[in-house]
Amino acid sequence: MAADTHPDVAVEFRNVSYRLDHGATLLHNLNLAVRRGERLVLLGRSGSGKTTTLKLVNRLLEPSSGQVLVEGRASTDWDPIQLRRRIGYAIQDVGLFPHFTVERNIGLVPALEGWPRQRIQDRARELLQLVGLEPHIASRHPRELSGGQRQRVGVARALAADPPILLMDEPFGALDALTRAELQREFLSLQQRLRKTTVFVTHDLREALLLGSRIALLEAGRLFATYTPEEFLRATEPLAAAYVSAFQTDKKPGGGS
């Protein structure tokens, strides 16, 4: 029960390591603080520990050593159910419930929290509008939606109970480039209005620069450094520079897909 965190800190990792039962260490001694209202992007390639870091916040995983403090309280001291209902969660595969309508999907956490029906319904309509969807799709099932619509519903579901913290694991990763750019822009403007503390996982520097107010670069289970987007572009460390140069090669005409 360490209550000595700064009140401006929403999530803090203190010497956190995560090991699998049979040896492999996925995360080495992570120290990182996520400030209230900031949009922290965890950037790294596959296997760098981004998703592991994210799942330690809502206690889908528990640290092998060290502590993850959420609002000043160790994740292991929280009741996991209470903790998760205060944290919005959106993932790349969306994970909408195929047997629920859009409205029931969005209203899932409010329903678990026992909100009255009318309030859940109103909230679902409000959120559909917020993420740029027509209210009439509320009665559809996920299979009747396009990929972009599904992701929007996924974001609406994560926001439903107005959680102070949002965790997003490559939520736009599976979309085509145009739809992705559209959702990224909308998400950014949404975030600037809602000002939620957000931890966002991506392997795409472009997305990190666009959406993050701060970028934490992870490599092989270790935090390499944190940067503001401007700092990242000017960074001289070889790892950060490699991301930037790959990013700039991508932009050159004729430079491949």
Binding site: L60, I91, D93, V94, G95, L96, L108, L112, R157
Partner: peptide
């Protein structure tokens, strides 16, 4: 679908809710 179960767990469904609702 793993993603469906994972999303349910991540949003704070109890084991029983996950079993009977999903």
């Amino acid at each position: 679908d793993r993603a469906v179960v994972e999303a349910g767990r991540g949003m704070g469904m109890t084991g029983r809710q996950l079993l009977f609702q999903v």
